[in-house]
């Protein structure tokens, strides 16, 4: 298959998830959309420069991560309390009957993730929301697979302790 077609296929498969991921991590929807656009423009630029991409999914997430890091370097994270980030900005699907229940679950999920350290939050999100394999997370974050496993284990343990206490 031609690389152009492969790339557009990767867009169709992962664009929504990448945008969702960025929306979760940055302050507003407009910035998230700008960054998501940048992810795909940069990815294409990389391909045009003659380099090969073996697996689009971790490759695109890696670019997204770098852009998010750059974004926060330019703008201190203290501006954006994690509790406010997604509860205000992200709206949930329109199916009426399950909406209330879903919102409660989503806000609980935000609450849980807000209790974690930045690194833990990112890795847990990659694992359970982005559905990335340990190996892929290791590729994105530059940590060893074992290290990723330990971080996830510790994050879940601390959440379990929190739930136990509350």
């Amino acid at each position: 298959m031609k690389i152009e077609k492969q790339f557009l296929e990767a867009y169709d498969n992962y664009a929504a998830a990448i945008l969702r991921h960025i929306q979760f991590r940055v302050s507003d929807q407009e910035t998230a959309q700008d960054l998501a656009q940048e992810v795909f423009f940069k990815a294409w630029q990389y391909i045009v420069s003659g380099r090969e991409v073996k697996n689009f999914k971790p490759f695109l997430y890696k670019i997204a991560n770098n852009l998010i890091i750059d974004y926060y370097r330019q703008r201190p994270r203290a501006d954006v309390p994690i509790e406010d980030i997604n509860q205000k900005q992200i709206s949930y699907g329109p199916e009426q009957e399950k909406e209330a229940e879903r919102e409660i679950s989503a806000s609980l999920a935000h609450k849980y993730l807000s209790l974690l350290e930045d690194e833990q939050r990112q890795i847990v999100y990659h694992r359970y929301v982005d559905d990335l394999a340990i190996k892929e997370i290791s590729e994105i974050t530059g940590k060893t697979a074992n290290n990723v496993r330990v971080i996830i284990h510790r994050a879940l343990k601390s959440l379990k302790d929190y739930v136990g206490k509350n």
């Binding site: 929504a16 929306q23 849980y112 559905d131 879940l156």
Partner: peptide, 17 residues
Amino acid sequence: EKIKIIKIIKKLKQASV
């Protein structure tokens, strides 16, 4: 408890774009 926590976190997949 751990499975329940993971299930709740996975609900974020439904966030609309």
